[in-house]
């Protein structure tokens, strides 16, 4: 089993890549790998509740995030600095997350077998 660390730094509906990227994480979990996910930078916006991308003709991808726990992906982190810079709090998010400072997350990343960003 490998530790695979996914870093999401873009919002959910601005491009198809974020959605396709999460597909890889779900597949990794389905293959019994240990998946860790980190939302940082503008990626924290992906977690916001009450998004209505239908208004611009896009499918709502927020249910993808709720599927993470179904796939036993429970190590979901948000970088505290990214949240603070954007004035967000974890109560605004669609799923439960671990809020961690940048320095701590860097240590976590160093233990990963594979880092994925896009």
């Amino acid at each position: 089993m490998k530790n695979i660390f996914f870093i999401i730094d873009k919002p959910l509906h601005g491009n198809i890549q974020t959605q396709e990227f999460i597909d890889i994480a779900l597949m990794a979990a389905a293959f019994d790998q240990r998946v860790l996910m980190l939302f940082e930078g503008d990626g924290v916006y992906a977690l916001l509740q009450q998004q209505t991308p239908e208004a611009i003709g896009l499918k709502n991808s927020s249910p993808l995030l709720k599927a993470l726990s179904v796939y036993d992906i429970n190590d979901v982190f948000v970088e505290a600095e990214s949240m603070r810079e954007r004035g967000l709090s974890s109560e605004q998010f669609v799923i439960e997350v671990n809020v961690c400072p940048r320095a701590e997350l860097k240590q976590q990343q160093e233990t990963a077998d594979q880092l994925f960003s896009f």
């Binding site: 695979i4 597949m27 990794a28 293959f31 594979q114 960003s117 896009f118």
Partner: peptide, 20 residues
Amino acid sequence: GLGLLMEAIIDADRHICFGS
């Protein structure tokens, strides 16, 4: 499918991504 990507990640010593 993506299964072949996962197989590669698991079996290879290094997996390297190009482009974003």
